[in-house]
Computed example of a mutant assay.
Amino acid sequence: MAAPPSPVDLLDAPEGVACKVIDNGEKIFDISWAEIDGAKKYSVELNCDSNLGDVNIEAEVAKSTITCAAGTCSGSISEAEVAEVIEDAIEAGDVEWPELTEGETLGWLCQAEVKGLNPPGKRQNHPKGKASCIEESLSICPVWAPGELSQIGSHTLSAPLTYLLKADIENRTLGSIPGTFMDYEYVGASVEGKWTFVTNTASVYKSGDNFVGSFTLATEDSQKSIDRTVFLTEAEYEACKSTLTSHSASQCQTNQYQALDGSCLDI
């Protein structure tokens, strides 16, 4: 019997293994881990058990999809690739597929298993890092496009603009509207003695049991070029809120106005 490998010949198990199931039209198993010192390659597998019967499937992530940068490695495998492995296993007679009765849905609980490799070593049974795969919902904000949002707060003080306020308002109760997140820009211009005022806003808020998004973008003659209100799911509300909190219309702190002279005033 061959002697077991010496501990000094074994690579460390990877740290920080994570597996996210991203559904953006097609499910992708996205797996990441911390780079292992001494590893020349990696073995990355999905080990999935069905919720019906005793069905276990192992699918390997292709080496070509594995990349490492800045101390972190990652690889991915699509649901279609896993389905192909399942079909091959059924055809080979390795898997006995459970009969689905009315109302039953076949689901999977998957775990990612990662280990480092250092060929041409005699043995490659290095310790594995493991993580359960967690569904992550990807939602996009349907209220505005990124290019539209970037116009909020884009004005600077130059002729004929003589009045300008900008603000980032987050998580404040404005009157009776809780859960409000807003980027706000108020522009005043005097042209030949005539004042025009423009208000540009992007906001989300909660109204009773509803989630609402609003986007208004006006031209400098005060005509509203875009005036949009959209009812949202909770996931869409969170997606819109995330884009607002990562976009800054003002150079001041949240819940402050940036005044004409550049000073910051509390709302």
Rank of each mutant, 00 (worst) to 15 (best):
E148S: 02
G129F: 07
S64F: 11
M182P: 08
P119H: 00
T243C: 00
Y257G: 00
E60N: 15
T72Q: 09
V230M: 02
I57N: 04
G193C: 03
A131T: 01
V230Q: 05
S225H: 10
T199S: 06
W144R: 10
K128Q: 15
S222F: 01
D183G: 11
D49F: 12
G147P: 06
E236F: 03
V21F: 11
E185V: 03
A13L: 07
L217M: 09
P178V: 03
S246K: 11
C264R: 07
L232I: 04
K224L: 05
E136M: 12
A39H: 03
K115G: 11
E81W: 14
K224M: 00
R228P: 02
E234V: 04
I31W: 02
G193W: 01
I226D: 00
K122C: 07
L232A: 00
C252A: 14
K206V: 11
Q151T: 14
K27R: 14
D54A: 04
V82F: 15
C133A: 00
V85W: 07
K206T: 13
S225A: 09
N24Y: 10
A62S: 14
V191I: 15
Y205E: 01
T67N: 10
V143L: 04
F211H: 02
P4D: 10
T72R: 08
A159G: 08
P14L: 00
Q223D: 05
L10M: 11
L10D: 06
V61D: 02
K206S: 05
T65D: 08
P146T: 10
I36V: 14
Q124V: 06
E35L: 11
T219S: 14
G25C: 06
E234N: 08
L149C: 04
S250C: 03
K41C: 03
Y257K: 12
N118K: 14
L161P: 08
K241L: 05
E99Q: 12
A112S: 02
D209P: 06
T67D: 04
P4L: 13
T245S: 06
W144Y: 15
G75L: 07
C110F: 06
Q258T: 05
S50W: 10
L117T: 07
V55H: 03
F211L: 03
L149M: 02
S246A: 14
S139L: 07
S64V: 11
A112P: 03
V198A: 01
T201M: 11
A80K: 15
I134L: 10
D54T: 06
N24K: 08
V204T: 06
A69S: 14
A218G: 04
D227W: 13
S78F: 04
C141P: 02
D12S: 13
L265D: 09
A13S: 09
V55T: 05
K27V: 09
I66L: 01
D168N: 15
D266H: 10
D168T: 09
G121T: 15
A69L: 12
T233L: 04
S250N: 01
V230Y: 05
L217Y: 07
K128E: 13
S154Q: 08
